[in-house]
Amino acid sequence: MGFKLAYLLSILPNLVSAAAVNIRLALAIMLLALALGTALTVVRSLKIVAVNAVIAVVISFVRGTPLLIQIFIAYYVLPAVGLDLSPEVAGVSAIAFNSMVFVSESMRGGLATIDPGQIEASTALGLPPRAIWLKVVLPQLFRRIVPVLINEATIVVKGTALLSVITVVEVLRRAQQIASTSYRPFETMIGAALVFLVINLVISLSGKVAEARFARARI
């Protein structure tokens, strides 16, 4: 049983069509993670002791447990407390929650690099806190974390492959279905790996282009 390149090529179109699911889910996750991560950063910056203590525990939990376990929790535990989610929604919420924490952590790092003089100046000019966040801090923060966000996007795309374990039919699940009828798991898995490789390389490369543009815009 040798490696059959022709077979690998023949299943690629099928896998690529399944990749649309991964891309769609990854996009939804990134948007959610960015919105929630920003909100979390703003809440943390209010420095309410009790709230921040709770957030610190949640962050430690998310960073200390595997994403796979977090997906299982969303899929198996949430229905038990009355939240019956479809596999797709459960998976998206789990990964988005995980990603939100990492986005917020890197935003906190970026926040430290913003000159406090700007915030003092905005306050002196009488800008309300909402305007300081929206017009002064966040635009700079987003630019600064572009490289982190690109990296996070590739991690999220890789994370969507885990959703196969909760029956979401994405690239890996489709590959497993193909392999179970053709008995050629090796070629099939190489095909799935190639699909992810291409998606992530495209993200990294476009990220580099975006970074270069932002770097120019800053000057």
Partner: peptide
Amino acid sequence: RNIPFIILIFVVYYGLPF
């Protein structure tokens, strides 16, 4: 770095016997 670990694991798991 660019392929999901869950796929790498299957590639190794099926590739070794291969």
